[in-house]
Amino acid sequence: MNDNAWIDAHRQGQSDQLLSDAGVFIVNEGNFMSGNATLSFYDKATGKTSNNLFYSTNGLPLGDVGESMSILDSLGYIAINNSGKIYVINTETGKYSGKITGLTSPRYIHFVSKQKAYVTDLYASAITIFNPVTFQVTGNIPTPGHASTEQMVQIGHTLYVTCWSADNTILKIDTENDSVTGEIKVGTQPKSMVKDKNNQLWVLCDGSFGGTTSGGQAELQQVNPETGQIEKSFALNSDNIASDLTINAARDTLCFINNDVWQMPVTASQLPAAPVLKNPGTIYYSLGVDPDNSDIYVSDAIDYLQRGLVYRLTAKGVPVDTLKTGIIPGFFCFKQ
């Protein structure tokens, strides 16, 4: 049975369940090769969490390793890494709207326009171009010598892309002609990246953690996108996970994981003396900051086998809520 037939059979007799406009989608990775990725939805106003949303709405498993999710208008695009596809849902109902296939190992999605989107890839040595309206792949941007492309930030017509595994490069891509025009060298294994209020890039390089490079230093770096120069560099603890660089609503304060959860103004000349959230001995796995009110969402993978937790805090670190999700909550996508 194909996806559409499976979904039609499941939906018979079902009524639509509307999802709040004030909510957060949580992509739960699941375990590699287990096909148990799931999607949760958290209603910020009521505190209600709907788990296993994709399956309960569509009767279809999400797939193998849920990586990320991005929203364009009323559609949400969910990258399923090891399944090599992107599922598309209606963000008001959670219903299946289509899928994008022919991908190797999709990671993150960036919308250049309403008719063009890019998706990075862990293994393809190329960035795939697809049409968000037709769900068709329309081309690719070769990235020879850079097998692993990750997060994307656009400034003007230039897209900046981190190259992660065993790499130290940010690629520059012309979004008008879909070509690589240059590169910026940064620290070891640049992964997450944000743009601040001054159009400066901030990149978190995880060093050797989780990749194939040995002996690299974990660093937080400020990069001038016009000159390609590293303006600031802060050494992080390379013995712990350094990941998930995010930024607040005003785009003047960074937030990231380095075992604990840290906040730092973009004007800072040194790392903060204390974290905003101390790690009690668990696994802080992923981080999201609400683009509306700067609330902090931190996931706890616990042991990578049981269902995870998410802690919601105010921007000042005051606890608001704790919710239970699926296995390995790995990505937050905020409805706006």
Rank of each mutant, 00 (worst) to 15 (best):
A37S: 14
N28D: 12
T169K: 15
K116Y: 03
I257H: 09
A45P: 01
V27C: 01
L60S: 06
D321Q: 15
F256M: 05
S70H: 00
D43G: 10
A117L: 12
V318Y: 11
D303Q: 01
H146F: 15
G207H: 09
T91F: 00
K116L: 13
R107Q: 13
E67Q: 06
S70N: 07
A166H: 15
S286F: 03
Q200T: 10
D300F: 05
S238T: 13
G102Q: 01
G145V: 10
R312N: 08
N198D: 12
F111G: 01
P280Y: 11
A37Y: 01
Y77D: 08
E231Q: 14
N237G: 05
I129D: 00
T143C: 12
L309E: 14
E92D: 05
G76W: 07
S214D: 12
L323T: 15
F32M: 14
P319V: 07
G228Y: 15
I26A: 11
N31F: 02
C333Q: 10
L62M: 11
A274G: 07
D206N: 15
P319Q: 10
M33P: 02
Y118V: 06
N293M: 02
A242T: 15
F130P: 08
K114P: 01
K335L: 11
S74K: 15
N4V: 11
A242W: 13
L19T: 01
N240Q: 15
K48I: 13
N28E: 08
V88E: 02
V27I: 10
H110C: 02
P132N: 02
D21C: 07
V180S: 00
